[in-house]
Design a protein around this nucleic acid. Sequence first.
RNA 1: GACCCCUUCGUCUAGUGGCCUAGGACUCCAGGUUUUCAUCCUGGCAACACGGGUUCGAGUCCCGUAGGGGUCGCCA
Length: 435
Amino acid sequence: MKVRTRFAPSPTGNVHIGNMRAAIYNWLFARHMGGEFLLRVEDTDIERSTPEAIQALLDAMDWLGLDVDGEPLYQTTRQQAHLDAAEALLSKGMAYKEDKGGMGQGECVIFRMPGTDSSFVDGIKGELTKKAENMQDFVIVRSNGTPVFHLANVMDDIEQGITHVIRGDDHIENTFRHIALYKALGAEVPNFAHLPMITNAQGKPYSKRDGDAFVGDFREKGFLPEALFNYLTLLGWSPGDDREIMTREELVEAFTLERCQSSAAQVDLKKLTWMNGEYMLKLPNEEFEALAFQSLETAGIDAEPEYAEQVFKLIRERVKTVADIVPMVGFFFSDDFEYDEKAVKKKLLKDGVADTLGNMKTIFQGLDVFNAETADKALHDFVEESGLGFGAVMAPVRIAVSGVQSGPDLAPVLAVLGRNRVIARLDRALALFSA
RNA sequence: GACCCCUUCGUCUAGUGGCCUAGGACUCCAGGUUUUCAUCCUGGCAACACGGGUUCGAGUCCCGUAGGGGUCGCCA
């Protein structure tokens, strides 16, 4: 039988990172097995399920490259089928009506647990069992006539022909109920695999309060989808060898449920950032530039393409995330940049620095040609002639033209900025900081 | 509280009874390269939760303890 997995989120607009990892595992498993990956939108919460929220969900999946087979199933279209199933269960005596709790809310439909011990083999955790006395009957249709999650979920998984239900381990208890439902409904029980949860930097389960809980947050922070995908896959799974940076094809090829960890995993932003940097490095130049131009645009920076491309070449290898770009190149596009206070205090407000900057200005003005090579040579010559240390010359010049202590090679930076800008900035630094 | 699950370096993990004086990666630290910064290279720190078994031999199997987590809704 062909493997079919599914991702069944509630479209709330924000897709939780833990949910998205479950989606990734479902996708990976389906692709590995040559099966299908389906989407079911559990949109029965009318308040939160707006078209925008659904679109946001689809966008997040698209961004991560989780392609879906077939049309998505919208749970709201299935209500009648759910209710019919409840009727059938009722008529077979497998469910009963009751005014639960006697609260006068009216009668709801309650599923009768079979009263036998239950056990199943979880694809990740192994055999799981539960004694009959620890399982209670449960509501499948509310007194207001709407189906409850358990019924809807099972019915729709049957409808979509799901063979493998891969979900968070917070569903383990539900699984015993669901299995009983499958059997009562006369349907084949699918395979189940329960993923351990992932936790935040504090080692606690992700809550909606966590800043980085949603897929969109990672996108905004400048992470590449392929890097996030790779990282999330490795969080709780490993190929069994030492590979870490893996292409999507390699991940699909290597992915199996048996190699999934059965304990919770903690997200480590530092490692994600490292991995993202590796992916940034691998990006084809055109893609990097496209991303960079986009970042400048959203930051409201007007960039002349030819000039910008020179700038991008300078920072290309230093960027860890897309979000690094704008702060790194700001001074190339505007004279209105901040001076790093510490840097100024430590390097600029020193005796003799004003002379150094003044000398460099004169030297640069006197150059026949001003480019990376000549600027570099001028810098070196001056260091030698003056007997000043290298740091005593480079650092002040760098801070004067960029505001900060670190950045790409200084000479190329000067060359790209151009002589006029460099001299103007040296003048300004002289005026502002001559001690 | 009841039921269930989990436990290898700070973090992600390899490890399926001898190949483990426990390997890799991130982080961190030190040195080197770069006559600036970053990169890069080399090296280092650092773990089998604890206690009992079983066995010639246990990180690997069993039992218990502790700690962590999940679930106990007419939410999903």
